[in-house]
Amino acid sequence: MSAVKPSPGRSLGGTLRQLVSGKHRSPLPGFGPGLAVTISWLTVMLFVPLMALIAKSVSLTPAEFLTAAWSERARAAYMLTFGAAAIAAVVDVALGLLFAWVIVRYRFPGRQMLDAIVDLPFALPTAVAGLVYSSLYVKNGWFGQFLVPLGIEGAYSRFAIVLVLIFLGLPFVVRTVQPLLSSLEGDIEEAAASLGASRWQTFTRVILPSVMPALYTGFALAFARGLGEYGSIIFVSTNIPYKSEIAPMLIYSRLEDYKYEEATAIAVVLLAGSITTLMLINWLEARNRRYAR
């Protein structure tokens, strides 16, 4: 995640290592117990639950799985979930780049406050975000009284889902772009300028390519957050099947009817979708990083 600096005195460490053990493996204690704790923790909390999901979905015949996971209602829910998360993540990339740019490069009153407040969506419970967003944008709400007459429905609509996801995803992009942007050396820009590049050219040809990997990562994190989000959306959406029902909500309503198999099938599709996107973006980021060098 962060650039790891090789610590000074590595040779000292190497010498000590040879002195103490003479073997390749680290002479530090705690490997056995540490590994035992780590593996049991992840097994109980992560691997066994994941296996339960897989076991349940495998217990369905392929035909049953398809009827449950690919019904018209489920397809509509996937479309909305993936669509809203993607749009929100794209908007977050633009807004996040703007925030990171302004916070890193300019000095102005309130800069530190702005820098700090960007983290609020990380810390604020999503139920609170949903509660507030649902009432700010209704007809007589603080924003809604101006927006609703213009035909902009920021609550109880699909736009409302996108809006709250933009709020939740913003810090992911800002916090991934910020370190990269501030580590850029000023002399590269000066070089570009001295070679006759305009500011816009410098931005698109020099700065943008070097922050691109961070933009991909930020997009992926915001997108993954948006795909899974539930707490805030049940407040701001009308939750009507086929129209404004997101996939996690459909999973929950199957669960409420004790239709665990159907819920599992939909969950597997949602999970596969988010893991595939994350892997794809990881690959894109790695490729981009290689070419940027």
């Binding site: 590994l35 339960a52 969950a267």
Partner: peptide, 28 residues
């Protein structure tokens, strides 16, 4: 502190909850 086979796998597993919708986690 240690290098051992499966280390990368465990490292990846630690990130996995970020990719799982909380509702799916509850379902599990």
């Amino acid at each position: 502190k240690f290098k051992f086979p499966g280390r990368t796998l465990l490292m990846t597993a630690l990130d996995l909850p970020f990719a799982v919708s909380p509702v799916v986690a509850g379902l599990m």
